[in-house]
Design a protein around this nucleic acid. Structure first.
Lengths: 223, 223
DNA sequence: GCAGCGCAATCTATATACAGCTATAATGCA
DNA sequence: TGCATTATAGCTGTATATAGATTGCGCTGC
């Protein structure tokens, strides 16, 4: 039959988790915002119990902070942690080739080519959410090339911890410059995939992670 | 006054978390063992709700697996993941010096010297639990030298994911050889601390992580 | 005016009853 | 006897009421 069954508990939890994580990543829930458990639970049509389970995971991942008697708020990131996370991401990217990489498939290459198209469209028209979505999809592609499960999970975690901070700087940066470099990165990554070279892929990625960190650092050093 | 107040919710959760994690790490809860929520909750004198919160965190960390309608069981680790985790640990150890290290204090040096004494005692008398405790304490010391919060958390996480597997091999390995190499490692680490050189400290650590992986690999390759 | 205390509002933490899922054993039919 | 189906026991998932923590406001007394 395969009728549209009610989703399983795991699926429901996963849906709530990804929804909230995306809202935080896209700054729809900006740092400092208080999250009301009852209200969110009602929105998802569940009780507080499963919603709290999701919030606890997000808390463990550092995206929200739960304080007894006070509330749950979206976290901010201090600049030292921001840089520390970037350093780790760069390290993980540089070693992608040696930490049991996955096989490159045509699906990867096709997805990446689609992203290049999307980046070209973004060059014409500034669109922060569009950039954030592109960024998310690229990260998913990268994780798909990491064969080491712990390295993959770590890479994903670190990305979502800083994605929103990066997004918050985006409006202040030179849009054409950012998109231009993103396009260059995507092309470089595409070339690496063409020769199925995950090692080079990671090194290209690392280069642009450094570049983006440097770009943001200018705005931070004045803190 | 500072009377012995009832511990806070966070403290109670932390206590349960660390208790269970230690039991898993020391193989008192071996891989495959089923954990009964109600029974454990009773043991800690709480209801299922806070206990489940702890189990969910352990599940997120990969130490237990929760399956709806079935139960919660201590996970096992396949050999690929085991090696992947070791590769990451080695990578993190090697870069300890460059990822914002903490300052070395006399407290660190003193603790390490105490560990050398404990290792000497273990050489006389084989004691798996004693070795596991020493190993845990060394890992805590190492984490204390990591200034990068994300790197520290990751290092800790990876350690506890493989500690029990390592412990399960310990009875099959040559005790004198293992203790001898552990002593050498501790002395090497102590020398690095003497000159406050976290970079060398990490490189020594990486060397012995490789050695231990190699030692265990012999038993695994036959799988 | 102000300092300190206490109350109330609001949030998270916990206990508990119940619903839903899964694996297994029992049962009935071919 | 063998297989499919169904009952059932035992587990996790969810809803909800209550307890506990924290903050801020307002009252009171000096």
């Amino acid at each position: 039959m395969n009728k549209p069954d009610k989703p399983s508990a795991d699926q429901r939890l996963r849906y709530m988790y990804e929804s909230i994580r995306q809202r935080i990543g896209m700054l729809h829930y900006p740092p400092g915002m208080m999250i009301n458990e009852m209200q969110l639970a009602n929105e998802f049509g569940v009780s507080r119990t499963p919603l709290r389970r999701v919030l606890q995971q997000l808390s463990y991942e550092g995206l929200v902070e739960i304080r007894n008697g006070v509330g749950t708020r979206v976290t901010d990131i201090d600049m030292k942690t921001f840089k520390d996370i970037y350093d780790l991401r760069i390290l993980l990217a540089e070693t992608m080739g040696s930490l049991s990489p996955n096989w490159v498939t045509d699906r990867h290459r096709k997805k990446l080519d689609e992203m290049i198209e999307r980046a070209r469209d973004l060059r014409e028209k500034k669109n922060i959410d569009g950039y954030a979505n592109l960024s998310n999809d690229l990260e998913a592609l990268i994780c798909d090339l990491i064969g080491s499960k712990p390295a993959r999970e770590m890479t994903d975690l670190l990305y979502y911890q800083v994605a929103r901070i990066w997004c918050s700087f985006l409006p202040n940066l030179d849009w054409d410059g950012v998109i231009g470099e993103t396009l260059e990165e995507l092309k470089g990554l595409s070339d690496a995939l063409a020769s199925s070279d995950v090692g080079t892929f990671g090194k290209v990625r690392a280069t642009y992670l450094r570049l983006m960190l440097k770009k943001v650092s200018r705005y931070i050093s004045s803190d």
